[in-house]
Amino acid sequence: MEAQFLMFLALAAVALAASVMVITRRNLVHSALYLIVTFFAVAAIYVLLHAEFLGVVQLLVYAGGIMVLFLFVILLVERPGTGPAGKPMRWHAAASGVLTLLVAAILGAHFLRSGMAPPGGTAVLGASGGNLETVSLALFRNYLLPFEVVSVLLLVALVGAIVLARPRA
């Protein structure tokens, strides 16, 4: 338990440090690369919580899929060493500071009031054939409708993107 907690602290520190680097780097490609580090640390935390499936999918979807597209787009629009971000608007910093404090306050209050979740333990996951089966049963049996709604939403977004990108005849 002690070792697990120490590992969590290390991973959380990596995730936080990398996130700070994401928003402070001037170079977009560096930001994107630090974001991958963040995803890695979060995936490792999932694995630490015995949610291997979630951890692997986090890597597969975010690091392996989405970030490649991010990088691809950045590479197409920018050359290394160039492209400073636009000048920040005067009220930008103040507004984002207020918003950050607000979100932190709401989340903090929620966490303080709700208390710890009861530990599920690894027995729950191990019992019915592991992560993969548990997750897929929940997804396709109990939450099939929301799952399908989300996939239709993604399809609509895809079609919309293609329509927007097509040259007008």
Partner: peptide, 10 residues
């Protein structure tokens, strides 16, 4: 690993 194939893809 019970998610071996997914791990490989990832």
């Amino acid at each position: 690993v019970n998610v071996g194939l997914l791990y490989l893809l990832a």
